[in-house]
Amino acid sequence: GTAKLVNACGHWFLHIPVTFDVDELDNSQINHVVGIDRGLRFIATCYDEKGKTLFVNGKKVLETRCRYKKLRAELQAKGTKSAKKRLKKIGQRENRWMTDVNHRLSKTLVNHYGKNTLFVLEDLTSVTFDTTKNRRKDNRYEHSSWAFYQLEQFLAYKAQLKHSKVIEVSAQYTSQRCPKCGRINKENRNHSLHLYRCDRCGYSSNDDRIASMNIQYLGTEYVTGNPKPRFISK
């Protein structure tokens, strides 16, 4: 490839792109299936085939983003030339910080679950607008601007290097379905308490955990031969 010499923060770096082949993970080699629900309260809620749940708390991330949001609002209110210049620098700084968070998180997940792992994520392309417009105005920005897709990209290439892979499944009903009896009812989810309680079998748990359990189930369906697993409301 083509090398690039970069001067950053008083240091010189030589960036050299490298391309190499890696073996693709076959379904017969998959040992672990991990469902991952992405969000803000928990950046990632993971559920695996052993029934273990991993929560990645997003509190510190939200606090940092709120500080950036407040600072941007103050600079925009000033409207001066120097304020606009600083506003641009702050935006670049926040983007670098977000990228670093997603890099570290994707690396942690890949190392935690090891090789031959299938990471299952929701396809959020068709639900982003609907979920954003239904949120309160004061936290709509935090939800819509977080780099969920970037996290998926980072996880995908890091997983491939560890002989694992990432797939997307339909997000429909993953937060409304009871993972124990299969009942689908959106009223079972209490958003304010972050709790899901099934009105049929009585099973209850954290709503983010419920979503990750359902996503993980769709992953097992993929492994058994269903190329596009999804839930259907009867």
Score class of each variant (00 low, 15 high):
127 V>K: 09
127 V>A: 10
128 T>R: 15
131 T>Q: 15
131 T>C: 11
132 T>M: 06
132 T>H: 05
132 T>E: 05
134 N>P: 04
135 R>I: 11
136 R>G: 15
137 K>H: 15
138 D>N: 14
139 N>T: 14
139 N>H: 15
139 N>V: 14
141 Y>L: 15
142 E>G: 14
143 H>R: 13
147 A>S: 15
148 F>Q: 14
148 F>S: 10
148 F>R: 11
150 Q>I: 13
152 E>P: 00
152 E>T: 03
152 E>A: 05
152 E>Q: 07
154 F>A: 12
157 Y>R: 10
157 Y>G: 06
157 Y>V: 05
158 K>D: 02
158 K>Q: 12
159 A>R: 08
160 Q>V: 12
160 Q>F: 06
162 K>T: 00
162 K>H: 08
162 K>S: 04
163 H>M: 10
163 H>P: 08
163 H>G: 11
164 S>A: 13
166 V>T: 06
172 Q>S: 12
172 Q>H: 03
173 Y>F: 06
174 T>E: 04
175 S>K: 04
175 S>I: 01
175 S>Y: 00
178 C>Q: 06
178 C>R: 07
179 P>Q: 08
179 P>W: 09
180 K>R: 13
181 C>F: 06
182 G>T: 05
182 G>F: 02
183 R>C: 10
184 I>C: 00
184 I>S: 02
187 E>Q: 10
187 E>V: 03
188 N>K: 01
189 R>H: 00
190 N>S: 10
191 H>W: 04
192 S>A: 12
192 S>D: 11
193 L>M: 03
193 L>E: 06
199 D>C: 07
199 D>K: 09
200 R>I: 12
201 C>G: 14
203 Y>M: 12
203 Y>S: 10
204 S>F: 08
204 S>L: 09
205 S>Q: 12
206 N>W: 00
207 D>C: 03
208 D>P: 01
209 R>M: 09
209 R>F: 01
209 R>T: 11
214 N>V: 04
214 N>T: 05
214 N>K: 08
215 I>D: 02
216 Q>R: 11
217 Y>D: 10
